[in-house]
């Protein structure tokens, strides 16, 4: 290997090493457990304080939407399991009973999921319309 190649390889190795470092340090800082409502239901206590991302459906339980304070409370469930959710922010357009939602946040003291993000299934996925009415 020529001297030029050695220099180049050293440079490349430094770049790759710093990229790997960035990826691992970035990953440890921003991970969250990704689970369904039944999975969460089994280990609510264990998950307290952890960052979690939960997917499920909006149940038929009453939805409270406080326009003044942008406070949205509803119940998210799947099958038998369900978890109350409290979210501060704008109610997404697709949010309604039966909608698929993904919630990011933490379990609070009373077992309520305090959501920092609330996402409804994205229409760009062209999911088939659920028959309404």
């Amino acid at each position: 290997m020529s001297k030029q190649h050695v220099k180049l390889s050293i440079g490349a190795a430094i770049v790759v090493a710093s990229m790997v470092y960035l990826m691992f340090s970035g990953a440890t800082g921003s991970t969250m457990y990704y689970m369904t409502v039944p999975e969460l239901h089994q280990q609510v206590a264990a998950m307290q304080g952890e960052a979690i991302r939960v997917s499920g459906k909006v149940t038929a339980d009453p939805i409270h939407w406080d326009v003044r304070n942008l406070q949205l409370t509803f119940t998210m469930g799947e099958g038998e399991a369900s978890v109350p959710v409290s979210y501060k922010g704008v109610k997404p357009d697709m949010f309604q009973i039966g909608a698929d939602v993904i919630v990011e946040g933490q379990i609070g003291q009373d077992g309520t999921l305090i959501a920092s993000h609330l996402m409804t299934s994205c229409p760009s996925k062209y999911e088939e319309e659920k028959p309404t009415s």
Partner: peptide, 9 residues
């Protein structure tokens, strides 16, 4: 376990 990484990553 399913662990996802968020936008900060």
């Amino acid at each position: 376990v399913k662990i996802s990484v968020a936008a900060p990553f």
